[in-house]
Write a protein that binds this DNA or RNA. Sequence first.
DNA 1: TATTGTTATACTCTATAACTATA
DNA 2: TATAGTTATAGAGTATAACAATA
Lengths: 140, 140
Amino acid sequence: MNENAPKPPLGLALRHAHIRAARVFTEELRSLGLENVVAGILIHLGHLGPQTQRQLIDMLNSDKSAMVRYVDTLEQRGLVRREPHPTDRRAQWIVLTEAGQVMLAEVHRAADRGEERLTTCFTPSERELFHELLVRFARG
Amino acid sequence: MNENAPKPPLGLALRHAHIRAARVFTEELRSLGLENVVAGILIHLGHLGPQTQRQLIDMLNSDKSAMVRYVDTLEQRGLVRREPHPTDRRAQWIVLTEAGQVMLAEVHRAADRGEERLTTCFTPSERELFHELLVRFARG
DNA sequence: TATTGTTATACTCTATAACTATA
DNA sequence: TATAGTTATAGAGTATAACAATA
């Protein structure tokens, strides 16, 4: 029909971009035995310090029942601890263990390798710009 | 731990961006009764003309069994026809019907409304730039 | 021998609701 | 009355393998 091939719409491009990136990060994280989202939790805990599960849910666009399972797997592997929350006795205070901090450093290296592989199509300044625009878009 | 809040890593930002956009497009497409991926198939058929299911699978990062169901629903709603492929008798030639072309126009309007809502955080030139970088990133 | 499409199956993810203990 | 977390369950989405027809 159309002889000129137009740019894919924003939504489809985002879908492709996310799928491609998720595959690359899955590969990079495989040797650590971590799922992408679980690795994301470690990164958030590293950035923000101890969080409640509710805070992690908001941060990762997840939901309550999924978060319970994610934290379970992290706790079983000794990477986080559930501690009583200092002011809210309903809440769990999710804290990185020493092993978790060691693992977090590995996760950051894996994420860096992944970003490197994913952004060979960009110049360094384009890469920086893309990242900045993407963060703004994600926040809305 | 860290007092300065660093930019979320690329992968997490992509996850957020995709989830946010998918929600907006789902809302915009609701009145048409179409899922996001199914609407994406219509868009591709409009851009590229009749395609085999295999081509649609590659285009949408889907898989064979899912594509059968997607095309089933499109065919049941009278938006596409399965025709014999002109040169490959194994393949199905997926063709937009007249009703499908009418619906496609609606889909494009819905997508435009969605993009409008999603990119209020950008200036027009930033929006254009983001779209272009995103397409390049998605292609790798 | 490989590929297109179909079907069936299993597995994962997500969404939802009920429940407790706290606020 | 509302919220944090847990648990159970159902639904959607995805992945896999077997199959028939054709390349």
